[in-house]
């Protein structure tokens, strides 16, 4: 039994193996992009939104609302980043209901890549918001002794993001596969439904945590805010 879709190689392009993780990621990308293009292709201000456009607006505005509740400085770039994280993960997880689907988030490579993206995005957003000096200064707060702990904490956050998502998705898929062999009719359905719920929750947690990390990096400390106000 293969625990990760990385091991399933479909074909090779210029010596580069296209495994199930990459292929199904492309499928998710195609679905998301294609649906977005289809729904928003005839978008005009004078045309009332149809049902699908309303669904998309609701999704986007809900994500934006969540980010606004968390972040002290709402930024559209944060919406692009965190929203894409959520949509990619939730789509990958929800498509597990399709027979034969290998969720890319069931691959530690994918979750590591997403965690790496968050790990890189946090300093980028922090430097972009507060400046490089202020951002680097946050690593020696409250004093310089905390520097290694802050660095370790930064990496451990990314690691926990990757492991949490991978473990939940992979375990759900493995449990469903095992139950399918033991009791083919009832339990796999229940577990798949539970897997859908878990997938949505994990996507939400991953995106929210990424937003929290980035928001904490972009947040101005209280002492600095007080100085700016005075």
């Amino acid at each position: 039994m293969e625990l990760t879709p990385d091991d399933t190689v479909f074909f090779t392009v210029f010596g580069f193996a296209i495994n199930a993780t990459i292929l199904f990621t492309w499928i998710v990308m195609a679905i998301l992009t294609g649906a977005s293009i289809l729904i928003t292709r005839n978008l005009r201000p004078d045309v009332p939104p149809n049902r699908w456009r309303t669904v998309l607006e609701t999704i986007v505005l809900t994500i934006q609302g969540q980010i606004d509740e968390i972040s002290a400085r709402p930024d559209r770039r944060l919406l692009y980043f965190a929203g894409t994280l959520f949509l990619f993960i939730v789509t990958s997880n929800l498509l597990m209901i399709v027979p034969g689907w290998r969720s890319p988030t069931g691959s530690l490579s994918t979750t590591a890549a997403l965690a790496l993206a968050v790990l890189v995005a946090v300093p980028l957003f922090g430097v972009g918001s507060r400046g490089i000096g202020a951002y680097l200064h946050s690593y020696i707060e409250p004093n310089v002794i905390m520097l290694p702990f802050n660095i370790i904490g930064e990496f451990s956050r990314g690691l926990s993001l990757a492991i949490r998502l991978y473990g939940n998705v992979m375990s759900g898929a493995v449990i469903a596969a095992i139950l399918l062999g033991v009791a083919p009719f009832f339990f796999p359905v229940v577990m798949d439904m539970l897997g859908l719920l878990t997938g949505v929750i994990q996507a939400y947690i991953f995106a929210i945590l990424a937003t929290v990390y980035i928001s904490s990096a972009t947040a101005v400390p209280d002492s600095v805010s007080a100085k700016e106000l005075t």
């Binding site: 998301l32 980043f81 993206a117």
Partner: peptide
């Protein structure tokens, strides 16, 4: 695969 997924994610961010 991690690098590919990272690129895929960035491309997806741009596409979306």
């Amino acid at each position: 695969t991690v690098a590919a997924q990272l690129v895929n994610f960035l491309v997806l961010v741009w596409l979306l």
